[in-house]
Each structure stands twice: as C-alpha cells, then as structure tokens.
Design a protein around this nucleic acid. Structure first.
Lengths: 201, 201
DNA sequence: GACGACAACGAACGCTCGTGCTATTTTTTA
DNA sequence: TAAAAAATAGCACGAGCGTTCGTTGTCGTC
C-alpha cells in the first residue's frame, strides 16, 4: 500500500468514528486535520471535496458493517439461524463498534430531506442491507423454519424498526433495558414467524 | 398578544418547520432572518442565544405534537381505542404536519451523542411521550382490552420502534408501502396484546 | 407634546468553514 | 543515485456563522 493510500485509509478510519458521533455534516476538514496531525490542505487533497469525503466515509462504514455483521452471519446455516445471527450481530454493531452508535441510523435521519449524491449513496447501502435481510428471511421460509405465510419484506421492516428503536432507547433515553427489549421483541417476531397461519385453537 | 410575542411566535413557527427539514443544528439565524424579512440582529434579540432558540423550537414542536396527536387521542374512550388513536395520530403526524417529517426523530439521532441543554430538553419530551404511551397501554390492561401479561413499557417500546421504522422507510427509502407496513405490524402487536398468555392449542 | 419602553436595524466583531493556489518535502521509479 | 511523481505544507480567499453594540423608529401613557 502506497503512502497516499495509507494516509487516506487512516483519515477515513478516523472520520468514520468521528462522524458516528457528530454526524456526517458535523465532520470538519479542520478538525480531522488537527486530530491526525495533517494540514487542512494536505488532508483535503486526498478528496476532491467535502462531499466526496462524506460519500467515502459512508462507503468505509459499509465495509466495516459487512465485515462485522454480514460476513460472520453468512457463515451460519441457511434458515432461522442465519436470520438470528444477522440480528444478533446487528445489535452488537449498534452497541460498540463505532463510538457514537450506528452511523447509518444517524445519517438516515440527518439526510432524509436533503437530496444529493451523499443521500443517494446512503439510500443505496440501506436498500442493499434491507435486501440482504429480506433474502435471509426468504431462505428461512424455504428451509421451512418459517411459515410460508410470512411476508419477507414485512419481517425485514419489523426487524429494522426494532433496531432503530434500540438505538433510540439506548443512546438517547439511556435505557439500561434497551437491549433486553429489542431481544424480547425479536423473539416474539420469530415465534410468530414460525407459527403463522396455524389455527390457534 | 404584544408585537414582540407575535414576531417571536412567527419565528418559532417557521423555525420549527425549517428544522424538521434541515435539523436543529442546520438552523441558521441568517437563513431565518432572510425568510422572515427580519434583520439578523432583530431576530436574534428574541432569543438570547442560538441554543435557546433550539430549545424553544423543541418546545414549540412539543406543543404542536400535543395538539395534533395527544389531545385528540385522549378524547377516545380508555382502553384499546385510545392506544389505537394515539398510534393513528402519530402516524399522521409523521406524514404531513411538518414538511420534513418528524422533528423529534431527526433530533433524536442528531443529538444522541451531544450532551447539553438542548439534548436534555429533547430527552425530557421524549420520555414524557414514552410515559404517555405506556400509561395508555396500562389503562387498556385495566379495561381488560389487553391481557394482563402485557408489559406496558415493552409494548410502548415496540410502538416507538415501528414509528421510527416508518419514518425511515417513508422518508429515506421512499417506500410507498411504508404506511401499510407500520399499520400491519401494529395490528399484529394489538392482536398479540389481546391474546397473550392464552394457551394456543 | 415630551417621555420611556419596546422592537427592529445596520455595521462590525472574531471565528471557522470549504476550497484554491504554489512551494516544498517525501516517496517511488528507473 | 538522479529524475519523476506523489504527498504534504503554507497561505490566502470569500462566505457564513453566532454574537455585540449603538442607534433608530414606533408606540401608549402622563
């Protein structure tokens, strides 16, 4: 790895952590340069614009997410186990991997009304992730772990919601029960997915 | 109402709408002054600081929320009907009342790692709202609409999550099914709350 | 008709932002 | 090891930020 790439990576590494705390728009070239002992212009030269930096930060975060959440879960056997693993790692991701919590959740609400390339990049990565979840559910139906009545997209939506609620409860409300709540709700979801359609009496 | 209060209210009205689009920290004295045909200093004089403005914007949003969501729902009879009405109005709130979606959801993720008086004000209002939801569920248990096994706080958490997921799907992902999804998930929640604990076979 | 309270203004402050140039240093290549 | 290329520094810019200050206009009250 050339010196340039090395520096660029170090910048993105730090910027991603910082952005998880102060938001993408809260990122500042000056602050980054100071933290990394670089000149503003020296740092700036690695990206053509602040906007490009933001997009690359999102991309970098996506790589970390894949490595920490998706890849390990895909090692689990197809079916419910894999769905469970995805959720489990996702919760862990929200807990500690970045200092300020989930950068995607923060960016989602930060950018939801501000069109542009940064938002586009975010939407793309979030859509991908939603598709991954949906597909994992679909597989669990194929393996008969889940009932055929389960709507994969709907279940993915509900999982997504629970994680957002988890971040909210944990980071804003400082609810010590946050993790117990999301796990309990998720268990209910899974129970329901297994039993759907069966006559209850 | 004196002239001063009149202006101040007009500022807050506009600032709240603007903040729902660009975030609390995206608010700018200059932009506000321009929009309202005021001088920066003239506008600024109504608040002692930008921070105070942000807090008052949150307070103003809370008043709108109470008027649009809580008050009408409290006219519904105690029990499930009221819980349903709260959720229903809440979804409507997310759909149209402020141009940029739910300002509280946006502020929650914007401020979750930034301590200070603004965050405190937000936490306070969000805690209040969570308590209101919890209490409505508790009442529905009293009226026997919901099973006694229901954990009110847990259900409130799940409702909260669904609404966050709704905002995410609607505003960021532009999912046209967003509303159908949150309603369907909520119905499942209610069904479960009615039937909990009964032996399923 | 003078007075004081209130509301709004204009100009300026120090600061930070992103970004553009031009050197200079460091790394890579031949 | 010399030349070429890449990486970084230094400096300046225009714009915008929140904030302060002194001034002006506009009232209702004595």
């Amino acid at each position: 790895m050339s010196k340039g790439e090395q520096t660029r990576t170090a910048i993105l590494e730090h910027a991603t952590r910082l952005a998880s705390q102060v938001g993408l728009e809260g990122l500042t070239i000056g602050r980054l340069a100071q933290d990394l002992d670089l000149s503003k212009s020296g740092l700036f030269a690695h990206f053509q614009s602040k906007e490009a930096l933001e997009i690359q930060v999102l991309e970098h975060a996506r790589e970390i997410f894949v490595e920490a959440v998706i890849a390990p879960a895909l090692k689990q056997p197809r079916g419910e186990a894999r769905v469970r693993a995805l959720m489990d790692r996702w919760i862990e991701w929200g807990k500690g991997i970045l200092p300020g919590g989930c950068i995607f959740a923060a960016a989602s609400f930060e950018l939801d009304g501000r069109p542009g390339p940064v938002r586009d990049a975010l939407v793309h990565s979030q859509t991908d992730w939603m598709d991954t979840l949906t597909q994992a559910v679909r597989i669990a139906i194929e393996t008969k772990d889940f009932s055929a009545d389960v709507d994969p997209r709907q279940l993915a939506y509900e999982m997504y919601s629970l994680v957002l609620g988890f971040h909210h409860a944990r980071h804003l409300l400082s609810d010590p029960q946050a993790e117990a709540r999301v796990r309990r709700a998720f268990d209910k979801l899974l129970n329901d997915a297994r039993r759907r359609g069966r006559k209850p009496s």
